[in-house]
Design a binder for these strands. Structure first.
Length: 270
DNA sequence: CCCTGAACCTGACCGC
DNA sequence: TGCGGTCAGGTTCAGG
């Protein structure tokens, strides 16, 4: 469910409430997530939280003695509530804090994870091979162009590959390709340098603009305070199958690529 | 190394 | 109302 903007929105919603505090009580109610919740999680009581940062779609809770990785998978969310707020279905991990707040990890589908990464989180197996952050300088047209040469997979699949660049999920891959006028079916190795320049710009633009608006709420994404994101209004193709292209009016098509839905304009995207 | 498809799991929705 | 099928924002892993 959450792509990078939703993860970053969640991080920003949580961090100011918790930095400088320590957990007072920890409850793992259902540790059966994508991977079992690390046993170290229950030992975090009294350790001070120094910061909450992000790498790819992982939210990093940096404690004085190490880092806790939290991934929201397809349906996960983090909420900050009062400790006396009743638990909801699928509140799998609950941390209470010195500031009298409760952090709840909720995830109906349980594709997310809560893992202890110790002192050097960047060496963790799930992190160490990830590609560059899309909003940082290392991700640029030269990089993407060089990396794509001789690749036979579709350009859409390519930009969604976390080893190429992190944080570009299904919604924003669709949107960035539309904005760049690139067919999602085109082979990555066949995209021109000029188009790669556009694509990098548009991936950055769409992610940044969505972050600015609190992410995209489709069905269930809510910010840490329970309010929705507002980016949905600005989606040009995702979820608009059969509707007219905002640019040329032609009917938008939907296909499936690697089992993910792709919506695009066959006139504007070549 | 590259590519594809299956797998993990719950819930919402649609047509009958 | 109920039932079966399909789909959903992610990512790893096995196998070719």
């Amino acid at each position: 469910m959450p792509e990078l903007p939703e993860v970053e929105t969640t991080r920003r919603g949580v961090e100011p409430h918790l930095v400088g505090q320590a957990p007072t009580k920890i409850q793992v109610r259902n540790g059966s997530l994508r991977w079992p919740v690390s046993p170290e999680v229950e030992d975090l009581v009294d350790y001070k939280l120094l910061s909450v940062t992000r790498r790819a779609k992982y939210i990093l809770f940096n404690f004085e003695h190490g880092t806790l990785l939290v991934h929201l998978g397809m349906s996960g969310s983090l909420r900050i509530v009062s400790p006396n707020e009743p638990l909801k279905k699928h509140d799998h991990v609950v941390l209470e804090w010195t500031g009298n707040l409760s952090l709840r990890f909720n995830d109906p589908r349980r594709f997310g994870c809560v893992l202890w990464a110790g002192e050097s989180w960047a060496d963790h197996g799930l992190i160490k091979n990830l590609g560059p952050e899309p909003l940082e300088g290392e991700f640029n047209a030269d990089y993407l162009f060089d990396k794509s040469r001789s690749r036979k997979t579709s350009i859409k699949q390519f930009v969604m590959d976390g080893n190429v660049v992190v944080g570009v999920g299904n919604i924003y891959a669709n949107e960035a390709l539309f904005m760049s006028g690139i067919s999602p079916k085109r082979l990555a190795g066949n995209v021109s340098k000029a188009k790669m320049v556009l694509l990098v710009e548009n991936i950055r633009f769409v992610l940044q603009r969505s972050i600015d608006q609190g992410g995209t709420t489709l069905r269930d994404f809510l910010k840490a305070d329970g309010s929705p994101g507002y980016f949905k209004q600005q989606l040009n193709v995702y979820g608009r199958k059969g509707l007219p292209c905002v640019s040329c009016g032609h009917e938008l098509k939907e296909i499936r690529q690697n089992n993910r839905s792709t919506v695009y304009c066959s006139k504007c995207q070549r």
